[in-house]
Nucleic acid binder design. Structure first.
Lengths: 212, 212
DNA sequence: TTTTATTTATTAACAGTGTTAAGTATATTT
DNA sequence: AAATATACTTAACACTGTTAATAAATAAAA
């Protein structure tokens, strides 16, 4: 059985190599500019071969979106060191914003593009595990905060939804260049050291302080 | 000079007809499924003729995005009846959410897609008028609220950015089907009459109450 | 009025996209 | 050795946005 084992291993190996190629192109040239033929060329197989390992492009896109969630989970893992739930929440927010800033293409795939969601609807019977798991981390933290007396008279789902929405809105408005028209100079003293992202982060903090 | 006037008029007429055809297809079949050839077929001209009236597809997309802003401004116009700035702000929020819910394709063009922004960068020297004008309506309202004592110790741009981000985040997470995985049932008693959008709106209101 | 110039629209083509049907080697099993 | 199964490729389909070259229609100049 060792030979057939090797065969299976080799098959999974190529599947991984395809994904690695896709990821490389994706990070290098962006999502829009990554085609099936590009990926095929990179792994040195014909384009049709990809369809023996992935059902369609959305299947690859979905796998890529999973990679993004792995990366985010990795960044999130350090928050377990933060004892106090409210401080942990603020740290999570900072990590989320940083992740979006540093991995805009991944973020787009994870939370904007419809490709991965279409794949979920088709093959995973509407069960978007990556999303619900990540949301749950936030939700549980909010509940812990409430046990400590924060967010009084608010439903935990409401609080979670508001926080996620605010962060997501800040990230995407920024990523999609919808904030370039907003000139903050009226308010803030123009500090050339500080980026727009810095101001966004500060705004988020002042917001969460208000919300408590 | 009357003849050349008529010529110009006819030219603008076809330009409008192209835009109308684009809008019709866009609203009927969605943005993704609207191609230059589709539009050309609808106006009964060859595809290349469109390029005599619009520089490229993004030019049409940009004009379409302007139509969206006109529609939003129209919906917003009724808020001038609301005297109290804080009440006006809440009404604006409701209108914004309703607009996004009822015109998801327009919303996508106005605040998500990069097509219109690329056009702005190319031909309008980075001046996204539609965006800054709409933002200013919010900003001015926030300032008026602060004059009445709301949002103490917060910069008006911060408040505006938070509100816009939260609304935008709610709209897009919902539109892009990233909230389908969140089961609110733990919190809310499942009222079949109420849609997810209703809950989102209630959440927004409870949020803005907190923020004040 | 005839000729030239300009505007308007078209055909054909380029280079690309995701995807599939059909065919070809290679390796495994009977 | 013959039949079957696996892995892969070639060729093609039906699209996409866009451009160069060309033809037809109109306006201006001779």
């Amino acid at each position: 059985m060792a030979i057939s084992d090797r065969k299976i291993r080799e098959k999974e190996d190529l599947k991984k190599r395809i994904l690695e190629a896709a990821k490389a192109l994706f990070l290098e040239k962006g999502f829009e500019a990554t085609s099936m033929r590009n990926i095929a060329e990179k792994v040195e197989f014909s384009p049709t071969t990809l369809y023996l390992y992935y059902k369609d492009k959305n299947d690859i896109v979905f796998a890529l979106h999973q990679e993004g969630f792995k990366l985010l989970a990795q960044q999130f893992s350090i928050v377990s060191n933060v004892e106090h739930p409210y401080e942990r929440l603020k740290t999570m927010g900072r990590i989320y914003l940083k992740f979006a800033e540093e991995n805009p293409d991944f973020y787009e795939l994870m939370f904007v593009r419809q490709g991965p969601i279409i794949h979920v609807q088709k093959y995973n019977s509407d069960d978007w595990q990556e999303g619900s798991r990540t949301y749950n981390v936030l939700y549980e933290t909010v509940i812990e905060c409430q046990k400590e007396g924060y967010f009084k008279n608010l439903l935990p789902h409401s609080v979670s939804l508001i926080i996620w929405s605010t962060l997501h809105g800040m990230c995407t408005l920024h990523m999609h260049m919808r904030l370039d028209c907003v000139t903050f100079e009226d308010d803030y003293e123009i500090d050339p050291e500080k980026s727009r992202t810095d101001y966004i982060y500060e705004t988020f903090i002042s917001f969460i302080e208000r919300l408590k």
